[in-house]
């Protein structure tokens, strides 16, 4: 009985239940849609159809299969998202550092940072495109902007979480500013920093795909809108939806794994 309870509450089991339930609900609707629509793949195809489209070696644009196309375009999108992500992390961390070093910087910039979050990406994208004059650059910049906010706020929260006693301890050692930051502040904010990274990783990818749809070229979003407009089979659209969902979730977990590798003290021993 106890074993059963343990199994029922284990994380693995819960995940499996969720996945099975989602598949069941999806298929239920797919059957329903199949009965009332002439082109069910436009609304909700069967999962088997989506898998088929990925595994079939039918060339859809003359030279590539669906899977090859998705992967090629994903490479471009993920590269842009990755560059934007890294720029966003660096600038977010630096701003948090400046805000913690200077009250003036914090007072003048922190309340207005939130505004960045309020502007819709699709509204911001054309403006940035107009400024940079290059869609590829603006895609990177948008990913950076979206990464920037969660990283900056969480890192600042991390700096502020340092106990007063730790500051007093460093003071009693007559430590200089540099030592205070390298020995106390930055190590203490690492878990918070990673919270920011975990929040913004899927966001950077989503934003990248979304901004891709604005103009042509190579990228998941471009491919996605072509498929939606009927330039190729609708299954490519579904392939991209699932592919990007998986990548988004993976990016979150990859950050989690890096965090655990960097913070051994968080995983050892009893709480």
């Amino acid at each position: 009985m106890k074993k059963l309870k343990k199994l029922l509450t284990s994380k693995f089991f819960i995940t499996i239940v969720w996945v099975v339930m989602l598949i069941a609900v999806w298929e239920l609707f797919a059957f329903h849609v199949e009965n009332i629509k002439r082109t069910p793949e436009n609304v909700q195809p069967h999962l088997s159809g989506i898998v088929d489209s990925l595994t079939s070696d039918r060339k859809i644009n003359g030279s590539q299969t669906a899977l090859q196309m998705v992967i090629e375009n994903a490479k471009a999108t993920l590269t842009r998202a990755g560059i934007g992500y890294i720029i966003g992390i660096a600038s977010g961390f630096l701003l948090a550092l400046f805000m913690s070093l200077s009250k003036i910087v914090e007072k003048t910039s922190f309340p207005y940072l939130m505004l960045i979050q309020l502007i819709p990406i699709l509204g911001m994208a054309p403006i940035i495109n107009a400024i940079t004059g290059d869609i590829a650059k603006s895609r990177i910049i948008i990913a950076a902007i979206l990464t920037f906010y969660p990283v900056a706020t969480n890192t600042l929260a991390g700096f502020k979480s340092v106990q007063r006693e730790k500051h007093e301890l460093m003071y009693s050692y007559a430590a200089n500013k540099f030592q205070i930051y390298t020995k106390t502040m930055i190590p203490a904010c690492i878990p918070y920093f990673f919270t920011g990274l975990k929040i913004s990783a899927p966001m950077a990818i989503t934003a990248s795909i979304l901004v891709d749809t604005l103009q042509g070229g190579i990228g998941l979003g471009c491919l996605l809108s072509q498929s939606l407009k009927g330039a190729m089979t609708r299954y490519v659209f579904w392939d991209i939806v699932f592919f990007s969902a998986v990548i988004g979730i993976l990016s979150f977990y990859i950050m989690g794994i890096i965090e655990i590798m960097m913070c051994p003290y968080r995983r050892t021993g009893k709480r």
Partner: peptide, 14 residues
């Protein structure tokens, strides 16, 4: 001075 506080104030990453 050496300071000892009410909480041990150890650095949990060390």
């Amino acid at each position: 001075y050496g300071m000892v506080f009410q909480s041990a104030t150890l650095y949990d990453w060390r």
